[in-house]
Computed example of a mutant assay.
Amino acid sequence: MTKERSYWFGRRRIGWGIGPTSWQGWATIAVYCALLIFVARAGFFAAHPAWSAASKVIFTVGMFAIMLAKFDRSKRA
């Protein structure tokens, strides 16, 4: 029995880059945006700009790691 791999992100049809191709990809982007909005509006992070910047960098690196792990690397014609 073979396990089919599901991809959350794939190559764009027009242009350069990758984008979400399933509901899991869209949910990942929504959670990422919600976390960035929370950090921007949270009082603790506003009082400590270093924590704000560090958390944004950590969230962005995590988002890129998820996108690369769930990216369809097949070539398009």
Rank of each mutant, 00 (worst) to 15 (best):
F59T: 04
P49D: 13
V31P: 00
I37L: 13
S22D: 08
A47V: 03
A34F: 12
A54Q: 08
Q24D: 12
F64R: 02
R11D: 07
S74N: 10
A69L: 12
R12W: 03
R73N: 07
V61G: 05
G62V: 02
T21Q: 10
R13Y: 10
M67P: 00
T60Q: 05
A53M: 13
S22Y: 03
V31F: 08
G17S: 09
G15T: 11
G17F: 07
W8H: 03
V31T: 11
T60W: 06
D72S: 06
A27I: 13
R73K: 12
G62K: 01
I14L: 07
T2N: 05
C33W: 10
K75S: 07
A50L: 14
R5I: 13
S52A: 14
R13S: 15
T2F: 06
K3A: 12
L36E: 09
A42Y: 05
S22N: 06
S55I: 14
S52L: 06
W8S: 03
A69R: 05
A54P: 01
P49N: 09
I37C: 03
P49V: 13
V61W: 12
R76Y: 04
K3C: 03
A34Y: 07
R73S: 14
S6E: 15
F64Y: 06
W16M: 10
S6G: 04
A50I: 15
M67D: 01
S74V: 10
S55T: 11
V39K: 00
A50R: 09
I58Y: 06
V39Y: 02
S22R: 02
G43I: 09
F59Y: 15
P49F: 05
R13T: 14
I18H: 01
H48F: 07
P20H: 11
F38W: 14
L68C: 11
F38H: 08
V39C: 08
Y32C: 02
R13P: 13
I37F: 07
G10H: 05
R13G: 11
K3S: 05
A54K: 00
S55L: 15
F59H: 07
F45M: 04
P20I: 04
P20A: 15
I29L: 15
R5E: 12
F38R: 01
I18N: 02
I14C: 03
E4C: 00
L35S: 07
Y32P: 01
